[in-house]
Nucleic acid binder design. Sequence first.
DNA 1: GTCCAGGGCCTAC
DNA 2: GTAGGCCATGGA
Length: 225
Amino acid sequence: MVYKSDPNAIYSHLRKRFGFLDWWPGETKFEIMVGAILTQQTTWTNVEKAISGLKAAKLLSLDKITKTERRSLEKIIRPSGYYRQKAQRLLSICKSIKREYGTLDRLFSLDKTELRDALLSYKGIGKETADSIILYAAEKPIFVIDAYTKRAMHRINPKIGEDISYGELQDYFEKRVKRDLVLYQDMHAQFVELGKNYCRTRPLCVGCPLNKICQYGSASIRRKH
DNA sequence: GTCCAGGGCCTAC
DNA sequence: GTAGGCCATGGA
């Protein structure tokens, strides 16, 4: 059995179903960065509530947020979960950026590798969050891996273990997909859209756009998973 | 009531 | 370098 796990083929199936996803709504780079941190292990609808709160309080800028008390920040971002951790980390990240770079644009003007190292040095930003910020806020092409992408790739090609490391799967994509900002942005978005609707632990693969290429999706098997 | 979400950090081995 | 515990709200 040859598994059709070429990312470009997968993307073509997803794109056909979901259309181009104008993803990661955010009016500013700062808002996108904050969203990337708040959405860790959290649904986007909950993040939206927190972002709305920040907007209402006019705190959605590096300068404003660094002048905010931790307790009042906690209160505003509460709906996004882990709110004590996130408030503390968000504050410390913003203060560090301001101290070390002055503005977000200065930070984002670093080249991709330096920017990634800088982001990873902050407590509260791991690989996925760093790469999301680079891809959607700084707008530099880097492939974002998340739990949905791992799970989907494993199901499409069992040779790709569920325990594959972040870097390994990222290399897998970057070696095979043309290095293009909008393509990278949309491809990650498509995997998330897939993950939210199909390919979860329980819901079904009936109707999944990847049925033709997924090991669980062939017509003879077509079952819940 | 139970499960889980667009992770990451810390600690122990 | 990795498995397990922890962080927490809100929707299905």
